[in-house]
Design a protein around this nucleic acid. Sequence first.
DNA 1: CTTTTCGTAACTTATCAAGTTTCAAATTCT
DNA 2: AGAATTTGAAACTTGATAAGTTACGAAAAG
Lengths: 154, 154
Amino acid sequence: MRHDGRLSRMLHVLLHMEEQQRPMTSEEIAGMLGTNPALVRRTLAGLREGGYVVSERGHGGGWMLGRPLSEITLRDVYDAVGAPEVFALGLADDQPQCLVEQAVNHALRRTLDEARRLLLQRFADIRLSDLRDDFAARAAALGVRQPGPTCADD
Amino acid sequence: MRHDGRLSRMLHVLLHMEEQQRPMTSEEIAGMLGTNPALVRRTLAGLREGGYVVSERGHGGGWMLGRPLSEITLRDVYDAVGAPEVFALGLADDQPQCLVEQAVNHALRRTLDEARRLLLQRFADIRLSDLRDDFAARAAALGVRQPGPTCADD
DNA sequence: CTTTTCGTAACTTATCAAGTTTCAAATTCT
DNA sequence: AGAATTTGAAACTTGATAAGTTACGAAAAG
Ligand code: FES
Ligand code: FES
């Protein structure tokens, strides 16, 4: 099953965004992610609606954080990218009136819902500043002074 | 994202299989699921390897339970259909050497792993006989005497 | 008014479970 | 033995959709 990488990618983008003291263009970000500007705009649009980033058009424009990383949780970002389906496992709906299918789906749904609740609760408990701190710790452990981009974006 | 309905469908099949006192052909099962025999064989093949069902070829052949429903858990069936990816959410791997991506993926992986552990533990705790009992209760609540198939398979 | 950059719509691609086709092999029935 | 039934398995097509692409208009700055 194909993955939905929007949450992961947007988290990556937001953390890099804080390092920069200037707006990042969609093209720069696309280079970072190995994709293209239109997709970046499409996905960041959701984050803009939530106020997590702001965009400016024209010369010198681009994307900047709309609030500190300490005020954004993983859950916020998950919701902002459209609250995509968490699970690849799905329920059959071939025989909706079949009591067996109903019993199976009921058990699966309860279990999936419980796991989803746990997951989203954990997401709500993690702030992006926590990820940044972890990143900083990793950089320090490697003896990196100025963490800066390690990819080919410049 | 597209769902993987193999677990749900195979549970449905196994429960119906117990009701029947005869081998069910792939064609019958395909009719139940609104699909075709080859797909049924492909998916049930995994269950056969685990000994959860047995198949007989030729006239009068078909599929039967290989052990009582009380000795099969949802986790068993999940594994038997290939232990498909649980989550639709995936991790980016565009910049494996990027410390930010590493920090993001580490946090996501830990959280997803925790939710996966919970899910699979719940699966391991649910026996197919529990689902059958729930099914029987639903049938009783509706006043059904002989639960039998409600779909067009006969 | 030219350049930069976002905004957005429309279209194409990649992926993989699901679905299909086909035939060989095994088993039973006559 | 031969016909009918049914699984086994390989090869192929379809469908759904996140990702990727193309194209052009609007807004802002120089
Ligand atoms: S993409 Fe994270 S360092 Fe460039
Ligand atoms: S499919 Fe469950 S009753 Fe026919």
